[in-house]
Design a protein around this nucleic acid. Structure first.
Lengths: 334, 334
DNA sequence: AAATAAATTGACAGCGCTGTCATTTTGGCG
DNA sequence: CGCCAAAATGACAGCGCTGTCAATTTATTT
């Protein structure tokens, strides 16, 4: 039915091997031959068979993305970035959603990685901090790149953004607006980004010689509800903040809702800042000032690094730029 | 390095073919032999090589999901469902995000489906209504299942939910609460679900002998912003509704925001209903009464149907159940 | 123009598995 | 106990490609 390499070879009047060379863009093929082969291939509508290629060359032309992510937007964007990189190399991306909570989680991963032979794995958070997964990957000798892991992975390069600096920038933005009494809502304690973002906040406050009122620090869970509750606490204490920086957008949206119910106008009475630039940031009123994470880029770079097996002198840490996005939820205190 | 079928055969003292039979759960293998082979395989930590299997058996053990979806939550859930089905059959899911808007969209799809040989394709909306894609799939003779297409696809089975009935149920819910003046915000005109949801609304109103005030029907775009604008219009007209049913959650969230700014309390002064049960439905205050789409189930059933090549007497239309989720945004009119 | 190096091409085996078909073993029954 | 059908197993080719290495052609040098 579909044309094979032999058909193309016959039609172009060359050997199979030469066709193979052309298809793989190898050097040492005369220009004339290359043209001949290419047009023969086009005429026959030939496309190489992945399985055969994989079997002969012991590559699968597949990479996998393993994830267990609550946030769909995050996962989709990593995928988008990774598939972009894949296309540049004629690779494809297999997705494997996992449930860390499952009893047979480890078995699942084992059998998965057994059946499927991938040439590399993109490890999305929080899986990149999962010892079991790492162990299995290492045992099977499968190259992987963790995205935003909380620690280094030996020699393996990692891809991440700078949460501390981003939080620092956001805090500075608030300070430059003229805010002095700034509240902060921390993220889920078990998520490594939480500590980093708080650290950035603290650094910026300290550098501006601003006091951090302990009453203005609340513990959140990264959820909308926890944002509402934290705001409730912050806004009913003695010292009222003129701005609240929540460690993610969901909580920030909760703050806005809470402020509204308390009769406070955002941003006139209270500035609110978020983090992540998830869809909700654009779907509340006023729209959230936030930090855009380079999610797509992280996926892209992780996959790219996997596919360029130039184990050369490239940096061990691929640090990608975030972006401070100023919308209507922050302004100078009235 | 890794064990091959030959190693297992030698160790179990049987032929390669028998090992193959055991690995594929074929009949006609004596129980004793099966056990022997299985334990040999386990001892050697053997897992079959997909590429070799694919080459020999002309199957790829891969299905693809093609999508071009604005909504991450929708895409992720279809994926989740599809991968669940894949695991049951030791298949894997390759994802291919596409950009219909791209100039070389058609070439992209062609080359994609050329390189990759998949055993089937799950076609997410709105791609399932894209003639180009269908044509390419048909030409290459690749089985596919469209999810929630706007029309039938010849003999191909389709997977969908009943938007009309769901909208009807939501409207009935509102009517049962005692609402008579009910506004409706339509979705994006080019999205086929929009018309269906409106139809459901109309049917329910008619059946309850309630008049549909033309001033209470607004055109939206499925976006938050369009929801705000539509609500603005509906709430400043002569006849004020006591409830507004928006054709999706984003718009419903916009309605809530707009109502808030107008000094209306939801649900006391105005009930608001959405559709889809996206994350935002749970992240606004009050939380949205909405319709949960069986998205995960649609992905699951599409993939499952692809993998059970029982072209038998199964129904041509796989209709999945939605669910009316009542939260705090709807109540009896005050 | 002969000798040597470099570029280009091809022959062939074999990657790890499954399909086909032949062969052997087993169980049932008169 | 012998005969036959059914069940179980195996031998072997070949899926479509790439790696290896050898053969051929072309360019360069003296």
């Amino acid at each position: 039915m579909t044309a094979t390499i032999t058909d193309v070879a016959r039609r172009a009047g060359v050997s199979m091997k030469t066709v193979s060379r052309v298809m793989n863009n190898e050097a040492s093929v005369a220009e004339a031959t290359r043209k001949k082969v290419k047009s023969a291939a086009r005429e026959l509508n030939y496309t190489p068979n992945l399985a055969a290629r994989g079997l002969a060359g012991s590559k699968s032309y597949l990479i996998a993305m393993l994830y267990d992510i609550p946030s769909p937007g995050y996962a989709i964007n990593i995928q988008k970035g990774a598939t972009d990189a894949c296309r540049e190399h004629s690779y494809h991306l297999v997705v494997e959603p996992l449930e860390t909570a499952d009893d047979n989680f480890v078995d699942d991963v084992e059998s998965l990685l057994g059946h499927l032979r991938v040439d590399g794995v993109v490890l999305a958070p929080p899986l990149c901090d999962n010892g079991e997964v790492i162990r299995i990957l290492a045992k099977r000798n499968i190259p992987y790149i963790p995205i935003a892991p909380s620690a280094m992975h030996g020699e393996t390069p990692i891809v991440k953004m700078d949460d501390v600096r981003a939080a620092k920038e956001m805090t500075q933005h608030l300070i430059e607006l003229g805010h002095k009494n700034i509240g902060f809502i921390k993220g889920h304690p078990r998520h490594s980004a939480s500590a980093l973002r708080f650290e950035g906040f603290r650094d910026a406050m300290r550098r501006a010689d601003l006091r951090i009122d302990p009453e203005l620090i609340a513990q959140g869970q990264f959820t909308y509800k926890s944002g509402v509750e934290a705001a409730e606490a912050l806004l009913s204490g003695k010292s009222t903040p003129t701005a609240i920086f929540a460690a993610n957008d969901d909580m920030a949206a909760g703050v806005i809702a809470c402020a509204g119910r308390k009769g406070l106008t955002v941003p006139d009475d209270l500035s609110v800042a978020g983090f992540d630039d998830t869809p909700i940031a654009d779907n509340v009123w006023p729209r959230l000032t936030t930090i855009r994470q380079p999610v797509r880029e992280m996926g892209y770079n992780a996959a790219k690094r996997l596919l360029n097996n130039s184990d050369s002198d490239e940096p061990r840490i691929i640090l990608l730029d975030h972006e401070l996005i100023v919308r209507e939820s922050t302004a100078a205190p009235k």
